[in-house]
Design a protein around this nucleic acid. Structure first.
Lengths: 210, 210
DNA sequence: CGGCATCCGTGACGATACTG
DNA sequence: CAGTATCGTCACGGATGCCG
């Protein structure tokens, strides 16, 4: 059964035929943090209905954005993960998130929040600050934690804390927003005490602007 | 009446709340070529229904992406044009189009085609080749024509031919695709005779790779 | 004729309940 | 846990009508 298409011979239309449906890009945002199970995806995508999520995952698998993989027998669970083609969306989504960050003002009472939703804007900021250092940075944000991995192959991020981070950042949503919007650089925020840093390796020093 | 939102405190979600509805990004693609009237928009967006187009234009005006402007009395028409906020989407849409270009294989019989739909991928290619030259390039593609303006303030494009172009490119959809996908550089395509160049100023020479 | 508004049929979406 | 089934609602696409 053919899915609906804009039927235009245009690079942008073709991209939207694949990732333009409701929820698709947000599912990719979740999977950019690494392989995840259906239930975890559903938990971090508040508002999506179970059937729409199941449908999207099938479509995205057909389109070569993700693969479904069974874990080893004891786990007996399936995880979804991005293919290289899916990961190639990171640059475009980064610029789209940059654009959206300018719209992001106050947190409305109805707004859900997960720490790793700010990983995309922070990724580039941290990578630029850290260069040429490499390593892992834990980010603790309003009760949630994720970590960012900086190496030559391009930065990435994942859920939860790292096993042995080179540095740890602690901040709240306001501080994170200021950095994401580029209003205030990270070392500045650290000096003001609005962002805490742990660690004393070269990466931690780089984040402090030293 | 509040529009539907993902209700997530996330830069990417906020961007999608504004440009994630069906047709919105394609309307922006059209307006990146300059101010346009309702009827012309409708003609270059085959498949959009009249009411959806009218609704989107109102929403986009409310969201500060576009403005509606009445032309001088003799014309008695209204045009829609992008605000600076709307124009800020060009970098993100360029990367999204780059990603989509990889998916763009054969032209299906049902696919519509307009020359300026390839302006976005060509824009950066031409700007990089031309630097540090400035000027205007006409592009004739499969019966349609648009022109690209290269100057320090960032490249832009518009419908139809320029009044006095510094160079003129002539190519078909296949050749355009090869360049858009980065498979073959423009000077290479010119040497192979798959892209024609008129003009002998510095800009035309730069496009030839000289 | 340009610029929509209205009506209507279809399909996508969201919430809940249910099942292997 | 990982979805499928059901159902009401809304968004979309196509056609037509209205009004300056």
């Amino acid at each position: 059964m053919p899915r609906r298409s804009y039927d235009q011979y245009c690079p942008l239309s073709r991209a939207l035929d694949v990732v333009g449906e409701r929820w698709t890009i947000l599912i990719i945002r979740e999977l950019l943090a690494g392989p995840r199970r259906y239930t975890d995806l559903h938990a971090d995508l508040p508002g999506v209905s179970t059937d729409v999520l199941a449908t999207r995952l099938k479509e995205m698998e057909q389109d070569g954005l993700i693969t479904r993989r069974r874990l080893a027998p004891p786990a007996a669970a399936a995880v979804y993960e991005l293919t290289p083609r899916g990961q190639d969306l990171l640059p475009a989504l980064t610029l789209l998130a940059d654009w959206g960050a300018a719209d992001l003002t106050e947190r409305r009472p109805t707004d859900a929040l997960r720490a790793h939703w700010f990983a995309i804007p922070l990724l580039r900021q941290l990578a630029e600050l850290a260069a040429p250092c490499e390593g892992t940075v834990d980010v603790q944000l309003d009760g949630g934690t994720f970590h960012i991995v900086i190496n030559g192959a391009g930065p990435s991020y994942a859920h939860g804390p790292a096993e042995d981070p080179d540095a740890r950042l602690t901040l709240d949503a306001d501080a994170c927003l200021a950095v994401s919007q580029g209003r205030t650089a990270l070392p500045e925020m650290i000096k003001k005490g609005r962002v805490g840093v742990d660690g004393d390796g070269p990466l931690a020093h780089a984040l402090r602007g030293q």
